[in-house]
């Protein structure tokens, strides 16, 4: 991994933090306000690719863990890692990795449709697939209850997936950061 890659990783960890400082955005027609941070997860995977995207989220979680209040709503510290909703946090690096993997797979024909596929699978499915069982386990509630409770956030996540995809496609054209696998393999 080159120093430049470390800088990209740090950059997206910082972007996650700045998104956390933004106030939640209320969206007409949806009862739950959108916090921007899953947007950051999707962008990290879509712009940086699997390895760097996943690492960016790990670094972000490390920064949260060492006590910076950079999760949405000014949360931070070790406390958030043991709460019932902590599974959603743990899912982020994996989600970014999966989004990155799919993005790299689609890279040659990358457009809005493929970006959406990647962000919906990685940024919505993966996050809930990890977050919901964790909620059920840590909170001692049945899986079905945890599932219905979490569904309130899905509309917001769909909006975010569309937004992230639009941005990712534009950045893909303007400043592509992902290099194709053949070249990445030779990079240290």
């Amino acid at each position: 991994m080159k120093t430049k890659d470390l800088a990209y990783i740090a950059l997206f960890a910082a972007i996650m933090a700045v998104l956390g400082l933004l106030p939640p955005v209320p969206v007409p027609g949806i009862p739950v306000p959108i916090t921007a941070q899953t947007l950051g997860v999707m962008l990290a995977g879509s712009v940086l690719g699997a390895r760097r995207g996943g690492l960016a989220l790990l670094v972000f979680l490390a920064v949260v863990a060492v006590g910076l209040p950079v999760l949405s709503g000014g949360r931070g510290g070790l406390a958030v890692f043991v709460g019932p909703s902590a599974g959603f946090l743990y899912s982020w690096p994996i989600a970014a990795f999966v989004i990155g993997l799919l993005t790299e797979l689609f890279w040659r024909r990358y457009n809005l449709a493929w970006a959406l596929v990647a962000n919906l699978i990685g940024g919505v499915l993966v996050i809930y697939a990890i977050g919901i069982p964790f909620l059920s386990l840590f909170g001692d509630v049945p899986l079905s209850t945890a599932f219905t409770g979490s569904m309130a956030f899905v509309p917001g996540d769909l909006v975010k997936a569309v937004a992230a995809s639009l941005v990712a496609v534009a950045v893909h054209k303007a400043y592509p950061v992902i290099e194709l696998p053949a070249r990445r393999a030779t990079a240290g």
Binding site: L6, A13, A14, V18
Partner: peptide
């Protein structure tokens, strides 16, 4: 990387 992240947060904001 963590040092860079802390430095980038105010820059990005």
């Amino acid at each position: 990387v963590i040092a860079m992240t802390l430095r980038f947060i105010p820059l990005v904001a």
